[in-house]
Write a protein that binds this DNA or RNA. Structure first.
Length: 150
DNA sequence: GCCAACGTTGGC
DNA sequence: GCCAACGTTGGC
């Protein structure tokens, strides 16, 4: 079982939306490094839900992988903002996971607090200028984050 | 294959 | 709204 962190802007899709939907297909990732992390995810992996572009930014809750290796259907949809004309149905470029809601943290763990607790090497999301929307989290660090949350 | 121009992310 | 960081595109 591995831990990860994924970002989303809560005004587009936040932890409250996932709590309502119970599960969701994490579509729209169009960065190869992030895609590779998505590809590595396995059933049961746990993912921190990070709210970006909000005040304050930080980790809002936890979700879990319920289906791995899902082909992102938006890449073939000409009406989708995530349409990729170069992706062919028999050789899809973009795959992702379906996640389910696990918990919303009692209070958000702010980026500021994460910076005070972890070094950039320990937790990639606190690294300045980091823009990847999917990141791995080491187990020991993940356990500390869970302690901070509850 | 280099790299300038450009677009996007995301904290502040 | 600003802008630093950085990924992508495309001319050469």
């Amino acid at each position: 079982m591995n831990y990860w962190l994924m970002k989303s802007e809560p005004n587009a899709y936040g932890i409250a939306d996932l709590a309502r939907d119970k599960q969701t297909l994490w579509d729209g990732v169009r960065n190869y490094q992030a895609r590779n992390f998505l590809r590595d995810m396995q059933l049961g992996d746990q993912i921190f839900f990070y709210h970006s572009n909000t005040e304050p930014p930080g980790i809002a809750g936890l979700m879990r992988v319920v289906q791995s290796g899902v082909i992102d259907p938006t890449q073939f949809d000409p009406d989708s903002p995530y349409f990729d004309a170069k992706s062919l149905p028999d050789q899809p470029r973009w795959q992702t996971v379906t996640v389910e809601f696990v918990q919303k943290f009692p209070s958000l763990i702010s980026l500021e607090r994460l910076r005070q607790t972890f070094t950039p090497d320990q937790l990639l999301v606190v690294r300045q200028g980091n823009r990847l929307s999917v990141l791995p989290v080491e187990e020991a660090i993940a356990e500390k984050i869970l302690e901070m949350a509850n």
